[in-house]
C-alpha cells in the first residue's frame, strides 16, 4: 500500500498492517524533518503531492520491489502539508522471511519514491527565504535568496 496522507503519520498504527506468520524480519524507515539542509538552517517544510499520480507511481514501486526482493509485506505513506521540525514526513515498512531482503527492499522503496513520485518539498529557512528543493535554475534561485540546494536526504 502506498498512500499520501494529509494527517500526521502514526508509526504504531502503520506497523500493525504488517504482521504475518511467515515473516522473520521487519524493517522500517522514518524520514523526519531536520533543522538544516546544505548548510542552511531550516525552520519548517511544506510538502505537496499530485496525489492520484503519486499513489499510482508509488503502487508501481511497491510492485517492482516485490519482483526484485523476496518480501512479504510493504507499506509506504508520505505526509503532505505544513510540517514542523521533527515531524514524520515518510514511513516505509517491509516484512520478509529474512532480514537481508527486508533491508534491501526498504532502501529500494524510499530511494525510488524520492526520485520518481510526484511529491515536492519547500524549505522555509530561518532567514525567511524559501526554496522548492531540486527546482532551482542555473545561477538564480527558484524561489528566494539561498543558493541552489542539491537533492536532499531525508
Amino acid at each position: 500500500m502506498f498512500k499520501i496522507s494529509t494527517a500526521p503519520l502514526d508509526p504504531a498504527a502503520l506497523a500493525r498492517m504488517l504482521p504475518d506468520a511467515r515473516a522473520g524480519a521487519c524493517v522500517t524507515f522514518e524520514g523526519w524533518v531536520r533543522d538544516h539542509n546544505d548548510g542552511h538552517p531550516v525552520r519548517s517544510l511544506d510538502y505537496e503531492a499530485y496525489a492520484p499520480l503519486a499513489e499510482k507511481e508509488g503502487a508501481r514501486i511497491l510492485a517492482e520491489t516485490r519482483g526484485k526482493f523476496p518480501i512479504i509485506g510493504a507499506v509506504c505513506v508520505h505526509r503532505v502539508g505544513a510540517l514542523a521540525l521533527g515531524d514524520l514526513a515518510v514511513w516505509v515498512g517491509v516484512t520478509a522471511a529474512h532480514r537481508g531482503a527486508a533491508f534491501d527492499a526498504c532502501r529500494h522503496i524510499i530511494d525510488e519514491a524520492k526520485s520518481r513520485v510526484p511529491i515536492w518539498k519547500k524549505e522555509n529557512y530561518a532567514d525567511g527565504a524559501t526554496a522548492w528543493i531540486n527546482c532551482a535554475t542555473r545561477g538564480e534561485h527558484a524561489g528566494a535568496g539561498v543558493p541552489p540546494a542539491p537533492p536532499s536526504e531525508a
Binding site: 510538502y47 515518510v90 511529491i119
Partner: peptide, 8 residues
C-alpha cells in the same frame, strides 16, 4: 506539468 520531485 511535474517539476523535479523531492519526496522523502
Amino acid at each position: 506539468f511535474i517539476p523535479p520531485v523531492a519526496g522523502g
